[in-house]
């Protein structure tokens, strides 16, 4: 074999290795989903969805968990959405190139890299102890809001950046003020992108267990919360709890709850991807 033959062979080999690597992750994912579905789908029925937790695996349900997850989803949206979008608008539309704004940007990038469990410690001290909210839904939602704030800010900025300068010029030239321009032109034009970012951030929040465990969300809550100040559990914590038990039946429960959690996560991501594609199709500047 000549040198160039060997090179070509190596090239071919790497090509195959590339395909292998690309698919190994996907294959593992497929095996995993298959395994979960096989183990858990038989357990999902009306009783499972509408029963309170129980010490007996066969009687335990996820009512409090999914209701808690829903509460957290809504409260987190209410807190993080206005805050994150406002901050994104400020940084993209108002902030001038100054040292303090430069610092703001670095700081946000840093926050995005702080482990979620650290946010849990922050929430524990500030919301649970200092503000005396206890292990309540509100404390959990506030903690998760801080966690996803950097994501929302970054995606809001991206979406706003995509609105062309000419739209702003057109608005200013008609005598519109800065805020009128932002409110009437920039935000509507970037809304699809902002929404996509928020939904992706929420799908992250829905799957979080660690920070909520740290602030004291409990695995066993024998009632569904009726106000933001009630104690709560969420699906990931319920799954964690069941996974850590030795009995096989609880693992089945965990698998069933995972199916529900994955449905919620994939649905949120699906909506986000759909919105992004629609946005890209709709507006060609």
């Amino acid at each position: 074999m000549t040198n160039s033959d060997i090179n070509r062979l190596k090239d071919k080999a790497f090509h195959i290795f590339g395909i292998f690597c690309t698919f190994i992750g996907l294959v593992v994912l497929a095996i995993f989903l298959f395994d979960i579905v096989v183990e858990g789908v038989g357990r999902i029925n009306w009783d499972f969805l509408t029963s309170l937790p129980s010490r007996r695996a066969s009687r335990a349900g996820i009512l409090t968990a999914w209701v808690g997850t829903l509460w957290i989803l809504v409260l987190t949206t209410l807190i993080a959405f206005p805050l994150g979008v406002s901050a994104g608008v400020y940084l993209e539309e108002y902030a001038k190139k100054s040292r303090i704004n430069n610092f703001l940007e670095i700081n946000i990038a840093n926050l995005a890299g702080v482990p979620s469990i650290i946010y849990g410690l922050l929430g524990l001290e500030i919301f649970v102890r200092q503000m005396r909210l206890g292990g309540s839904l509100l404390a959990g939602a506030l903690t998760l809001s801080l966690l996803i704030l950097p994501i929302i800010i970054v995606t809001t900025r991206e979406a706003i950046k995509a609105v062309p300068r000419s739209i702003r010029d057109g608005s200013y030239a008609l005598g519109a003020s800065k805020w009128q321009t932002v409110w009437n032109q920039v935000l509507p034009a970037s809304f699809g992108g902002i929404l996509t970012g928020i939904i992706l951030a929420l799908s992250r929040a829905v799957g979080e267990a660690a920070p909520l465990i740290v602030i004291g969300a409990l695995a066993y809550v024998p009632f569904t919360p009726s106000s933001p100040l009630d104690e709560f559990t969420v699906l990931p914590i319920q799954i964690f709890n069941w996974t850590s038990r030795p009995q096989e039946e609880f693992l089945t429960n965990a698998a069933a709850a995972i199916i529900i959690l994955l449905i919620i996560t994939f649905m949120l991501n699906g909506i986000a991807v759909y919105l992004r594609n629609r946005q890209q199709k709709k507006i060609k500047w």
Binding site: L26, L29, G207, E208, L251, A254, A255, L261
Partner: peptide, 24 residues
């Protein structure tokens, strides 16, 4: 096709990965 599929790996909640590690 592949890129969005790979992104799915990043969207799965970590508690679910934990279950996978322990039981599979």
């Amino acid at each position: 096709v592949v890129k969005p599929l790979l992104e799915v790996l990043a969207t799965i909640p970590t508690v679910v990965y934990g279950f996978f590690a322990l039981t599979v």
